[in-house]
Structure formats: structure tokens, C-alpha cells
């Protein structure tokens, strides 16, 4: 498949070791083959947007990168560490990779500030005052420092998602994963979250983002990856991919989402 070749081409930014390497990754849920020979390299500081119809395996793929899901075949190397059953490798990777979920998953029994300081204190063994300072600096960056003492249930969806981003950033990750971060939000709140993500992209963070926000992809992505039925079908710079789709599957997908938006 010609599309598969373009994926392995090194990106202009990656003259050092790549941030993430997926090599012929396969995964099954029972008899269902959900990831088929997925091969993808993400360079340092690269921003990759993953799109595709629902059930295409894009969420499963991104969840394999920090091992919320395990792959059964192939290789995943994150920041030079291969993901295996080894628990120490898992610890290392989870510290370096931040994740933002579709449903925010804030801890409802902790304040916004405590949500942010929990991992720095218990995982990074950071003094509380330092962790709180760090958390406040990130809460300022996502523009909600005044909510620090509130609980997640008291915030709007957009605010919760921005807290979730700040919470992940407090671990100072090298890589950020976003799994449909705006899909559970009301339309007027999507922008505030996307703006936060654009701001983060400008700082040079390595980002992998599953989203249908094509405007965001065009603005931020170095590369867009289109997945369907567990395969990577096409990959390339956003303009190339959106303006000149090579496969029927991508053409169909683009026509469907353009109808909606």
C-alpha cells in the first residue's frame, strides 16, 4: 500500500530518536481484529492528529501508547523504552506520557488543586508547596487559577477538560496524548479547550491527538493520520490529505464529516 510508505518517512523535525514508534502493532478483542499492522513514527515535538470513523481503532491505538490497552503483536517504543509486561518500563512511560480523556475523568472527591498535585506528590515525590506552585502555574496557563479550591462537579465541561490538561501537564510529560478531548463538550466550550491545546502545541510539546476537529488539525498538525477498520489508511500533512485524498475510504470519510460541520 502506497500510503503505508509515507508513514515511515522521517519527519523534518526528527533528527534525534523518535518520540513514539509503533511497528506492525496488532490487537484483537476476542475474534475482532481491532488494530492491523499499525505502523507509525512520531518525531520529537511533532504534532500528529489521528482521525477516522468510529470503530476505526484510533482510540485503541492511542491507548496502547501508554498501555491502558495492551497490544498482542508488534512493537511499541515510547521515548526509547519498549512497552512490555515489565512494570518498571510501564512506570517510566506513564511518567513521561500525559493523557487527556474524552470524559475528563477528574477525581470528583478532590479539589481542582488536589487533582493537579496528586501525581507530582505521590509519583514525583515533590514537596507539597512546590507541587501547588507548579499546579497553580499550569492552572493559570489554562486560564482557571480562580477555580483551584472548587471541586470538579462545580465546573463546566470546558473548564473540567482544561483542568484535565493542566493535571497531565503537572507531571511535566514529554508527550501528550489526547483521546477525543472535545467530543463530550457543548459547542460553545470546544473553542476554549482547542485554544488551550493550540497554546500547548506552540510550546513545542509532542502531541498525538484523536479528534474530528479539522480546523484544529489544519492549524496545528504536522501530520494527519487517517485510520479505518484498524488500519492506517493514509498519512501526510493536513493540507495534502484533506485537499487531495488518495483513497476512497478517506474521500467518503471527509465527505461525511464536512456534511456535519
Amino acid at each position: 500500500m502506497s500510503a503505508a510508505m509515507s508513514m515511515t518517512t522521517p519527519t523534518p523535525l526528527s533528527n534525534v530518536a523518535p518520540a513514539i514508534v509503533l511497528d506492525k502493532v496488532n490487537k484483537w478483542y476476542g475474534a475482532m481484529h481491532v488494530l492491523r499492522d499499525v505502523t507509525l513514527t512520531v518525531g520529537q515535538k511533532e504534532k500528529v492528529v489521528v482521525c477516522g470513523p468510529s470503530g476505526s481503532g484510533k482510540s485503541t491505538m492511542i491507548r496502547c501508547i501508554n498501555r491502558l490497552e495492551t497490544h498482542q503483536e508488534g512493537k511499541i517504543i515510547v521515548d526509547g523504552t519498549e512497552l512490555t509486561d515489565d512494570l518498571r518500563a510501564l512506570d517510566t512511560i506513564r511518567r513521561e506520557v500525559g493523557m487527556v480523556f474524552q470524559s475528563f475523568n477528574l477525581f470528583p472527591h478532590l479539589t481542582i488543586l488536589e487533582n493537579c498535585t496528586l501525581a507530582p506528590i505521590w509519583v514525583r515525590k515533590m514537596p507539597k508547596a512546590e507541587a501547588e506552585e507548579l499546579a497553580m502555574s499550569y492552572l493559570r496557563r489554562v486560564k482557571i487559577p480562580e477555580q483551584a479550591k472548587k471541586y470538579p462537579g462545580q465546573l463546566s465541561g470546558g473548564q473540567q477538560q482544561r483542568v484535565a490538561i493542566a493535571r497531565a501537564l503537572c507531571m511535566k510529560p514529554k508527550i501528550m496524548l489526547f483521546d477525543e478531548p472535545t467530543s463530550a463538550l457543548d459547542p460553545e466550550m470546544i473553542k476554549e479547550v482547542l485554544d488551550t491545546m493550540i497554546g500547548l502545541a506552540e510550546t513545542g510539546m509532542t502531541m498525538v491527538c484523536v479528534t474530528h476537529e479539522m480546523g484544529f488539525a489544519k492549524k496545528v498538525a504536522d501530520r494527519v493520520v487517517f485510520m479505518d477498520r484498524g488500519e492506517v489508511v493514509e498519512a501526510g500533512p493536513p493540507r495534502e490529505l484533506f485537499d487531495n485524498p488518495q483513497t476512497d475510504r478517506l474521500k467518503l470519510f471527509l465527505s461525511q464529516i464536512l456534511k456535519d460541520h
Binding site: 491502558l68 500525559g98 493523557m99 480523556f101 477525581f107 472527591h109 501525581a119 484535565a164 507531571m171
Partner: peptide, 27 residues
């Protein structure tokens, strides 16, 4: 306690024992 709570805490680097103590049991 939703599965997402386990996942979010795990993704932050907390070990299962700490997830149980800090996140799941209080809820």
C-alpha cells in the same frame, strides 16, 4: 467507581495500590 478513574490515575503514573487508596476507596 467508573473505569475512567482507574485509567486517569494510572495514566498519571500512580501504581494500582495508590490508585485504590487515593482514588477508588474514597469514592
Amino acid at each position: 467507581v467508573p473505569q475512567g478513574q482507574w485509567e486517569a490515575a494510572g495514566a498519571l503514573g500512580l501504581r494500582p495500590g495508590a490508585v485504590l487508596r487515593q482514588i477508588v476507596l474514597p469514592q
